[in-house]
Design a protein around this nucleic acid. Structure first.
Length: 558
RNA sequence: AGGGCUGUGGCCAAGUGGUAAGGCAUCUGGUUUUGAUCCAGUGUACCGCAGGUUCGAAUCCUGCCAGCCCUGCCA
């Protein structure tokens, strides 16, 4: 085993390759890169790639670049480069050195294209898009050579220069690699290397009117940056032949330690969509509030929802890396957040669907202060002040007139229950409105049960949460659920038709007064309910987003 | 015979010839002023199927089946 190998992380096929390359001294160190195209917001699938690339660099004491793959100005925008930088930083990763842009290598790409032309390996082709498609052949039939394939090197050089100088119209011609029109790899049938676009580029302005294609730019960018292991997703497996072809035909890069591409499977998560196109569509069609809607699988959405960087990194580690097309259960993501939040989230109580409770034997006008632990398993987090008085709120779900069975542990008439952090109370009677909904529950309390069990030894198993009515702060709760009703919405003809109508349910209730100064994005556990954070877009109001509910083994049992 | 990949318990995923890790989920106990957490325990996995090689195969060979990707001047 290589001494460079670390023991903490789970093994995967990429680590095996790296270990082998280090052992054979093919590479001295590990250099990776995360290469997003700035044409949308990052999502949890990107997070998997970010954690992989940056994680590898960290573990092997190598480096990882953040490189914007900005070769198509028509689709890209500065807004996206800003959001991507923000998301990567938020996840806790530091790119090595300055941010990289493929566009900063445009001069070099141009020169390498000239090198290929001079070697007779590239030519300017005037076939239009339709003709090119016809000439390409099909999956089962070879293509045929372009009539421009045998243009002389001198003419190609001149033509390519004219392309650069804007002497041709958009779409009039492209620079193509001269490879093999009968290759079984479609991407090897004389692929386009450069196309004309009179578009303003967010980095290079109007300097260029020709832009390199992904397959030409990506491998060279990797090589320029000295990337050792270039990791991408499965759909680029065929493209690897072109990646290799380009580098092997360029004098600067035709060497054993040039970058090599390895492909892993992209993340698919149940009940959501991961393609940028579909995510764009949800935003554009107004089906969600925006890229950072807490129901979106985007990094910014998850952040607003209350996910932490630690939980996302842990998730990435838990799902591993392989080449299998897979569909990951939401449960793994949820388990990862719960594990993190359970440790760090201060506990507090919130009543999201309030019913008034009147403690009839409690003195009128009196408000009692109680010190409650901020985290029952972690004394060091200290205490918080909560209140108790004659009037309280409990959650509607915690009261029934009569217990349905012996397992019922909540409040009912003639049944005792513990109020979390406070006294044991007993249901006495109730009032309803005209529709039969409970409006007020009248209870009695046992004054000898604050912080202790009943002296007579009677058992009170149930515990419900509450807030004191006069000091409670009104708050809005946004209860989020899966965005789609089916496991794999991408498979639907119209994925927007299977959006979960209950993916957001808004409730209005109360939180403890101590929540007045709660920070946006900071995780709290509303005891017995779940993990919540103050919405980062509603800073002046008491608005809480539910990150994830507590694990519930009870409601499933019926 | 287009080509490239992949098939290990419900979901992820180790394993690369020596007799199937781990996580999530499930279920069962215990603790508990969160039906949470925590603790302990819990799986007959025909290792896609069928042959073959071998003392021995998830691992090697052959054939088959299934799924995903490839015919953008997108990435």
């Amino acid at each position: 085993m290589s001494q460079n190998e670390t023991v903490e992380r789970p093994v995967n096929f990429i680590r095996n390759i790296i270990n082998a390359d280090l052992d054979t001294k093919l590479h001295e160190n590990v250099q990776t890169r995360f290469p997003p195209e700035p044409n949308g917001y990052l999502h949890i699938g990107h997070a998997k790639s970010i954690c992989l690339n940056f994680g590898l660099a960290e573990d092997y004491k190598g480096q990882c670049n953040l490189r914007f793959d900005d070769t198509n100005p028509a689709k890209e925008d500065l807004e996206y480069v800003e959001s991507i930088k923000r998301d990567v930083s938020w996840l806790g990763f530091n790119w090595s050195g300055d941010i990289c842009y493929s566009s900063s290598y445009f001069d070099q790409f141009y020169n390498y294209a000239v090198e290929l032309i001079k070697k007779g390996l590239a030519y300017v082709c005037f076939l239009n898009a339709d003709e090119t498609r016809e000439y390409r052949g099909t999956l089962t039939e070879p293509g045929k050579d372009s009539p421009y394939r045998d243009t002389s090197v001198e003419d190609n050089l001149a033509l390519f220069e004219k392309m650069k100088n804007g002497e041709f119209k958009e779409g009039e011609c492209v620079l193509r690699a001269k490879i093999d029109m009968s290759s079984s790899f479609m991407c090897m049938r004389d692929p386009a290397l450069y196309r004309i676009k009179f578009a303003h580029h967010h980095q290079t302005g109007d300097t260029w009117c020709i832009y390199p294609m992904y397959d030409f730019a990506h491998c060279i960018s990797d090589a320029i940056e000295g990337i050792s292991h270039s990791l991408c997703t499965l759909e680029f497996q065929d493209n690897r032949r072109l990646y290799d072809w380009v580098l092997e035909n360029l004098n600067d890069f035709d060497r054993p330690d040039r970058p090599h591409q390895y492909e892993f499977s992209r993340l698919n998560l149940e009940y959501t969509v991961m393609s940028k196109r579909k995510l764009h569509q949800l935003v554009d069609d107004g089906l969600v509030e925006g890229w950072d809607d807490p129901r979106m699988p985007t990094i910014s959405g998850m952040r607003r929802r209350g996910y932490t960087p630690a939980s996302i990194r842990d998730f990435a580690e838990r799902i591993g890396v392989s080449k299998v097309d897979s569909m990951t259960e939401m449960g793994i993501l949820e388990a990862a957040v719960r594990d993190d939040l359970n440790k760090v989230a201060p506990r507090t109580m919130a009543v999201m669907d309030p019913i008034k409770v009147v403690i009839e034997n409690y003195p009128e006008g009196e408000v009692e202060s109680i010190q409650a632990p901020i985290h029952p398993q972690n004394e060091e987090m200290g205490k918080r002040e909560i209140f108790f008085s004659r009037e309280l709120y409990i959650d509607r779900a915690d009261f029934m007139e009569t217990a349905p069975n012996s397992k019922y542990q909540r409040l009912a008439i003639d049944k005792e229950v513990r109020l979390r952090n406070a006294y044991i109370i007993k249901g006495e009677r109730f009032e309803t409105d005209a529709d039969g909904n409970f409006t007020t529950i009248y209870c009695s309390y046992d004054p000898e049960t604050l912080g202790k069990k009943p002296a007579d030894g009677r058992k009170v198993k149930g515990v419900i949460h509450f807030v004191e009515a006069t000091k409670a702060l009104p708050a809005e709760f946004r209860i989020y659920d899966r965005l789609f009703t089916v496991e794999n919405p991408a498979k639907e003809d119209d994925f927007e038709a299977v959006i979960n109508p209950d993916s957001l349910v808004v409730k209005n209730g109360f939180v403890e007064p101590g929540m007045a100064g709660s920070e946006p994005e900071k995780a709290y556990q509303f005891e017995r309910e779940g993990y919540f954070c103050r919405d980062n877009k509603s800073a002046n109001q008491q608005v809480y987003n539910r990150t994830v509910a507590l694990r519930d083994t009870w409601s499933q049992q019926k």
